[in-house]
Design a binder for these strands. Structure first.
Lengths: 255, 255
DNA sequence: GTCTATAACCGGATAGAC
DNA sequence: GTCTATCCGGTTATAGAC
C-alpha cells in the first residue's frame, strides 16, 4: 500500500496497460462516488456499486482492496486539484498574507464538494491505525508534499522578516494550522461553511501579524520556548526513542 | 477526553433500580471492557462478549444499542474519575499554572489505561454525526461541564491578572486547548506517552505566560482580534443562522 | 497472467417467540 | 428480560473466462 493520498498515478498504471481494466476501475470509482454523493457512504453498499456499474461484486474488490480504499482514491484527487488550483496564486501574489490566504481559499474550495463524505473521511483519518491518518507513517510523503506547499508560500513572500529559528519551523507550523482549519470544516454545518471561512480568513490575519511580531524582543522568550517544544516533538517523532516497535508499521503492542 | 464523556449516569440507573437487569447490564459491560483490553475493539465480537458473559447475543443488544454504545458507557467513567482525581489539586494549588498543570496531569493519568481504545474512540468521536463527538449538540452538557472545570481552575487562581474580555473566554479556550492535547495523545505512540506529557507540560507553561502577557498594550490589537473571532464563532454556533446543512452554496465565492 | 463471476463466510444488528 | 433464528452487508475464496 502506498501513501494515502497516493502519488499521482504510480501503480494504478503498472505498465503500458491499455485499457479495459483501467476503464473498469474508473467506472467503479465514478459509480461509487456518484452513489456516495447520492445517499452517503454508509448507505451505499458494495453490492449496489457493483450493480450500477454493471460489474460483479468480486470485480470491485479486484480493483479496490476495500470500501475504504474507494475513499482513498478520491482523496488523492482533491490533493491534485488543490495543487492545480494554487498555481495562479503563488505566481501572482507577493505578500505573505495574500499567498497564505489564496492557498487556503483554494483549499476550502477544492474540498467543498466533498463535505458530505468528510465525516467518514475524518472518521478513518482520525484512526491512528489507518493509513489515511495524516500523522501516520504512510502519510509522510503527502504530509511533506503539503508542507512543501507552505514552504513555497513562505519562500515567495517579499518583505517577510522572520527570525531564522522560526523560519525553519514555519512551513510545518502552517501545515498544522491548516489541518486545524480542515478539522473545523469537517464539523461545520453552517450554510456555505460560513464559519470555516470566517475562521480561516481571520486566522490568516492573526498568523500574519503573529509572524510579524515574532521578532519583537518582548516575545523572544515565548518564541524560544515554543520553538524548542516544536523541535523536540518533531525530533523524537523521527527517532522513536524506544526501540520496541522496529516493526516500522502499526506497532502499538506496548500498553 | 471530556467532551464525549457523555452524561454522568443518566439513563444507566433510570430509577432506584436495584435489580437483576442492572447486574446483567454491568456484567455485560465488564466483560466487554475486559475483552476490549485483552484483544482490542475490532477483534472483540459481540458474540464473544455474550458468550463469556454467559448471556445470549440478543441480550447484549437489549442493554446496549450497539457495540459502540458499550464504549460510550465506559467513556462516562473516565469523566467521573477525572473529576474525582482533580479535587485535591483544586483545593491545594493557588497559582494558575499549578492548577492547570494539576488538572491536566490528572486528565492524562485518568485516560491512560484506555489508550488502547483511543483509536476507535476518537474514530467515532470524530464523526460529526456521532453523539460522541465533542462538538455535537448531544455533547453540549458534558462540554459545558468540562469547561466549568477550567472555569474553576481560573477562578481559584490567586494573583491572576487577565483583561476582562479574555477572562470571559478563557475557560472555553482552555477546553479547546485541552482537546488538542487529547487529540495528540490519541496518536501518541511514544513509550509512556512521553511526547504528550512533554507537550502538555510545555504548553501549560506557554499558556500561563501568554495569559500573563495578554494585558500588554503591544498585544492588545492581536488580543482584540482573536477574541472577536472567538466570540463570533461561539455566537453563530448558538444561532445556527440556517437550519439545513445542505441548503446553501459554497461560501467561498467571494473573491 | 489478467480479469470476472459466483458462492460462501463472518460479525453486527433485528424480530419475535417465550 | 432472555433466547433463537435471521437478515444484511463487507469481505474472501475460488473457479474459470479471456
Amino acid at each position: 500500500m502506498s501513501g494515502p493520498e497516493v502519488i499521482p498515478m504510480p501503480e494504478e498504471v503498472p505498465a503500458g496497460r491499455t485499457g479495459k481494466g483501467e476503464q473498469t476501475r474508473a467506472l467503479i470509482l465514478e459509480t461509487a462516488l456518484e452513489l456516495f454523493r447520492e445517499r452517503g457512504y454508509e448507505d451505499t453498499t458494495m453490492r449496489a456499486i457493483a450493480e450500477r456499474a454493471g460489474v460483479a461484486l468480486g470485480s470491485t474488490y479486484y480493483y479496490f482492496r476495500s470500501k475504504e480504499a474507494l475513499i482513498q482514491s478520491f482523496y488523492g484527487r482533491t490533493h491534485q486539484e488543490h495543487l492545480a488550483a494554487v498555481g495562479g496564486v503563488l505566481a501572482d501574489e507577493r505578500t505573505f498574507r495574500a499567498r497564505l490566504l489564496g492557498v487556503m481559499r483554494a483549499k476550502l474550495e477544492t474540498i467543498e464538494p466533498y463535505h458530505r463524505f468528510s465525516g467518514i473521511l475524518f472518521k478513518t483519518a482520525a484512526d491512528p491505525e489507518s493509513p489515511l491518518n495524516p500523522f501516520s507513517q504512510e502519510s509522510r510523503p503527502v504530509r511533506e508534499e503539503a508542507t512543501e506547499l507552505f514552504a513555497e508560500v513562505v519562500r515567495g513572500s517579499e518583505g517577510l522578516r522572520v527570525p531564522p529559528d522560526l523560519m525553519a519551523e514555519l512551513p510545518g507550523l502552517l501545515w498544522t494550522w491548516h489541518m486545524g482549519i480542515v478539522l473545523f470544516w469537517i464539523h461545520d454545518r453552517s450554510p456555505g461553511r460560513a464559519r470555516t471561512w470566517r475562521l480561516m480568513e481571520r486566522t490568516v490575519e492573526l498568523v500574519a501579524r503573529l509572524v510579524q511580531l515574532a521578532g519583537n524582543p518582548l516575545l523572544a522568550p515565548l518564541r524560544k520556548l515554543t520553538l524548542r517544544l516544536v523541535r523536540e516533538l518533531r525530533d523524537d517523532e523521527a527517532a522513536p526513542a524506544g526501540e520496541a516497535d522496529e516493526s516500522g508499521e502499526v506497532g502499538g503492542t506496548r500498553t
